[in-house]
């Protein structure tokens, strides 16, 4: 299972990087969305996999009776999902406002902070 997921994770990363490298904000946003999943799966797989045994202690026991799925990466990924969603929403709105202000979704056109023909700073004292 780890092998299969490793390859899957690689595909997730490849697609998200390819999308991030594009010049269109929409595609970059889609790339961010995929990147979140890629990272989550990466962490999850790193913690080793075990099928269908959730990390829950059965009633009446004080410790798990059998081997259970590793709870630690699950806890990490759970918060990561929520936070990456918040970040995704924020970037989406940011991109939306940038499009409204600048009238383009091409990153080459979004150069207010670093204009192409930037002048030299003042040379006096």
């Amino acid at each position: 299972m780890e092998t299969a997921l490793s390859v899957t994770v690689g595909c997730f990363f490849a697609i998200s990087v390819y999308l991030l490298l594009s010049k269109h904000v929409i595609r970059i946003m889609l790339g961010v969305g995929v990147l979140g999943n890629a990272v989550n799966l990466l962490i999850f797989t790193n913690g080793r996999l075990l099928r269908e045994v959730p990390p829950i202690i059965a009633p009446g026991m004080s410790t798990p009776a059998m081997e259970i799925a590793n709870p630690l990466p699950q806890a990490l990924v759970l918060t990561a999902i929520v936070i990456s969603f918040s970040l995704f929403a924020f970037m989406l709105v940011l991109a939306f406002r940038a499009y409204q202000s600048l009238g383009t979704d091409d990153t080459d056109g979004m150069r207010v902070a670093e204009p192409a023909d930037e002048k030299l700073p003042p040379l006096g004292y």
Partner: peptide, 14 residues
């Protein structure tokens, strides 16, 4: 670039 990154992550994870 994307393919190399993806392959890198796969190999690392393996």
């Amino acid at each position: 670039i994307a393919g190399t990154c993806g392959l890198g992550f796969t190999l690392m994870l393996l």
